[in-house]
Structures are given as C-alpha cells and as structure tokens.
C-alpha cells in the first residue's frame, strides 16, 4: 500500500540545516499495523506528516496505492487524503466550537456525502465507539479518553484505507489508553492499515511490526508476528 524509497527531508534555518529524514526506505502492506518508534527528534512525526500528505519531502519516492505521489500538488494530495486517510492525534485536535456529532460528521461533509447518509454513518461509528450518548456534548465536556474516541471516530467515519496515529495514547491514562489501542486493533482486524507513531513499548506491542528510527534513518525492524 505504501512504499517509500530514499525519502529525504531537511529543515533549514539561517545558520544550519537539520536532516529530519535521511534516505529512509520501507514498505507497508495493505492490512498491516506498523508502529514507528524512536527518541524525540528522530523524524517520526515528520515521516507521519509526509505519509499523511500534509508535508512535502525533499527527495526520494513515495508510492501510495501504486501511485507516485511525491510531486502531486496540494489539491491532488488533499483529494487522496480526504478519501483514503484518517488521522488520530495525541492532543485529539477536536474543534471546540462543534459538538461530538458535528466533529465526526466533518470529513463526510467535505467529501460531499448527503445529509441523511451522513447521519446514518456518524451514528454507526459513534455507536461502535460507545459515545453515542455524548453526541450532543462539546469536546471540553468530555474526558480525555472520550475525546480520543471521538477523534478516532472522526478518523474512521469515511472508511479510510489508512489510519495515521501520532501518539494516540500520549495524553491518556493507562485504562483509557488501552481502550484506544483496542479500538485501533479492532479497526485493523476489519482491514484498515494503521501506521502509529509511539513512545510506548506497551502500545507498540499491539502492532505487527515495529520500525525503530534514529536521526532520520531506520535502524532496526522487529516483526511481532
């Protein structure tokens, strides 16, 4: 599903150039659950942003679903993104002014799903995430675990083929964290590819494969199955 080859990314300031990704290559197959680990500043988040087509790379190749997307413009990337990729963030990133229902509904609006259809889909996913009873609440009225469940619900509501999760349990206590990890595992079992950046060895164990990074390079790869 994803194949990156010699991916490069630099950050430049006036004085120095920092290498964030240094000729990184790996492949993720459809239906895999991959964890990416490494110390702060090793390039994990940069990688995730490029994989999510939120950021450009400075070299290399990125094939998504058999398409070379490295030179795609913003519009094409946005189009791939909204139909194929869901995001889950450490800090949830819900819109404070919108209710739970409206937050989850948002991606469907942007891909032009009709209103009745949207309601059906949002209800389904809220039911699945067990936060149906909170659908009229605003994010600040929920606990952290509930907020992250809403964020996951939003990420999966339009059935993306890929979920990119950036430290999804980083802001949660262990029981809420486990709940979220169970959710992701469940989604993976249903066929969604998941790439997750994490600091937590515990969370990484939920995945099929761990890619360990250092200074923008892959240093080791452990298969857990």
């Amino acid at each position: 599903m994803i194949k990156i080859t010699d991916l490069e990314k630099y950050y430049k300031t006036e004085e120095l150039q920092t290498i964030a990704l240094n000729k990184l290559s790996f492949e993720v197959k459809k239906g895999e659950f991959v964890a990416i680990m490494g110390p702060s500043g090793c390039g994990k988040s940069t990688l995730l942003n490029i994989l999510g087509m939120l950021d450009d790379s400075d070299g290399g190749s990125f094939i998504f679903n058999g398409e070379e997307v490295i030179h795609y413009n913003e519009r094409k990337r946005a189009n791939i993104r909204k139909h194929n990729i869901g995001f889950v963030f450490q800090s949830f990133n819900l819109i404070d002014q919108l209710t739970v229902f409206e937050n989850v509904e948002l991606p469907l609006i942007y891909i032009g799903v009709k209103k009745a259809e949207r309601k059906k889909k949002v209800y389904e996913v809220l039911e699945k995430m067990q936060i149906m009873h909170r659908r009229k609440h605003f994010p600040q009225q929920l606990s952290g675990g509930q907020q992250q469940r809403v964020a996951v619900a939003r990420a999966v509501v339009n059935n993306p083929k890929l979920i990119l999760a950036d430290e999804p349990t980083g802001n949660l206590d262990s029981s809420n964290g486990n709940e979220v990890m169970d959710l992701l595992t469940e989604l993976n079992k249903q066929g969604t590819t998941i790439i997750m950046v994490t600091h937590s060895e515990h969370d990484a164990k939920f995945s099929h494969r761990i890619i360990r990074m250092l200074d923008g390079q892959k240093v080791i790869e452990n298969s857990l199955i």
Binding site: G52, L54, R75, A78, R81, K82, H83, F87, N93, L94, I95, D96, Q97, L106, P107, Y110, I111, R154
Partner: peptide, 13 residues
C-alpha cells in the same frame, strides 16, 4: 488556525 488545520486534515478544500 487550529480549527482550520483540523478541517484541512479531515479533508476541507
């Protein structure tokens, strides 16, 4: 800006 960022990530043009 945060809201705009989120909306963009979830597919807003």
């Amino acid at each position: 800006s945060k809201e705009i960022g989120i909306r963009k990530v979830v597919g807003a043009s």
